[in-house]
Design a binder for these strands. Structure first.
Lengths: 242, 242
DNA sequence: CGGGAATGGTCGGTTTCCCGACACTTGTCC
DNA sequence: GGACAAGTGTCGGGAAACCGACCATTCCCG
């Protein structure tokens, strides 16, 4: 997993460089700037289930995912849980609190064992301000996030369970965040229920109805999307599908 | 209403200056930059109900609200409607499509008669890039939007009707977007239902239950919040309240 | 390889909420 | 000032989803 040894700064820096360059937001930085960024980035690994950041904390760090997936979620006093986003390799998270200085608005936990880079806010904020191009990149990133989140609100208001579930499966399939090839999504039904805001039972019922139609195939801890067009049609019409 | 006459550039520019300076995002600009911005901004008025921008359009304009309120919404094929945001005086909207170049993700309609400034993307984008401070302001703006929208997703997933309704009323009261003093919200029950994603009937039923407890008072086309603490408690616990 | 945790599958009773319909009030525009 | 639109109040049937309670299976870790 962690091939760079923190005891060897030279090699560490070299690996960091090649990894950070794959993150779209840093890809176009000048070599000097990228090098500077590498010096700021600290390498870490976290075990599945571990808390990376908690709601309400000061946002002192920006995170970049090297491997694994991170779950952004929030929970209510009565134990219910809402999954807001899943962050995969090549993506960053925790940028909002870093950029605006307000407390974290959600929890971040390791959905699988993860390899991360952590960048301190005190290093990063001046760095962004010194790189106008990077600021524009962040504006684009935030715009994308906003589009995604607004669409979620839209779907949750306009669509019923089948529509929402279809939309969620489509989103996961298209982004390939959990894709291990040919439409296999490594996600539990419990997690899906927390993404769309319905109970696990309702999700299970709907999924098996679709499995009977060969739209999907259910495996343990995974869902295989077989007929993506059927799901797309259902998601777009927003109706029916029981 | 419209005190600046477009036939008189001098006076127009003077008024624009004082108005644009009230928008937090432009407030800290250098006088020269602000002056430049005024030259870009075109003044317009739109009548209640008129479409300002439509979903799918290219985002060629940034809008700043001078007076009135604008409704950001999206509708499904079967006629259902979702209100995503309400924009009041001193706020801007339409910035996402301008900043990232993608099509508009929602409709914008005049909720009341409105007075707006319109700025062309071709003028504005180079302007932002030439003003590093402004880029940071936009980052903060987008972060705020993202926090608000994420919270909406959270609420819609975690809370039931009473909780969501209470949260919506609290939000509207605290932002004072529709406030005409002492907690009076100028909003119809139909509109609230489209904000929280429930039917008007359900909203009406819940509101009258609260009116019976003197938590709110219902007027024609308006809601007066009487006991804000009761609503806050309900919104935070997320439970009960029938 | 064995035990426990995680995940999936299943079931009715109950609640919530939608749906369609309608009467009444208020406001607005000609 | 009168017609019409917009907004509110109300009702009951029926569908959708929750809830709590299970057991079966699979996986993972010691």
């Amino acid at each position: 997993m962690a091939q760079d040894k923190t005891s060897d700064p030279r090699q560490s820096s070299g690996n960091k460089l090649s990894v950070l360059r794959k993150h779209p937001i840093f890809a176009d930085l000048e070599p000097d700037a990228l090098d500077q960024l590498c010096r700021y980035a600290k390498h870490t690994t976290v075990k599945r289930g571990a808390t990376i950041a908690a709601k309400g904390d000061p946002g002192n760090n920006l995170f970049a995912v090297v491997s694994g997936t991170v779950k952004i979620s929030s929970s209510s006093p009565d134990g219910r849980n809402a999954i807001l986003n899943l962050i995969g390799p090549g993506e960053i998270f925790g940028e909002i609190a870093v950029l605006d200085g307000a407390p974290r608005s959600a929890d971040a936990t390791a959905n699988t064992n993860c390899e991360l880079y952590i960048i301190d806010r005190r290093d990063f904020l001046p760095f962004v301000k010194s790189q106008p191009e990077l600021a524009m990149k962040f504006i684009e990133l935030l715009c994308g996030r906003l589009r995604w989140t607004s669409q979620q609100v839209e779907q949750v208001i306009l669509q019923n369970l089948p529509g929402r579930l279809a939309s969620a499966l489509l989103g996961l399939t298209e982004e390939r965040k959990l894709d291990s090839g040919s439409g296999t999504l490594a996600i539990t039904q419990q997690e899906i229920s927390e993404m769309v805001g319905m109970t696990r039972e309702s999700i299970n019922k709907q999924l098996r109805a679709w499995a009977a139609r060969s739209w999907v195939r259910l495996e343990h801890g995974a869902i295989v999307v077989l007929d993506i067009d059927a799901l797309r049609e259902l998601a777009e019409s927003g109706l029916e599908g029981g």
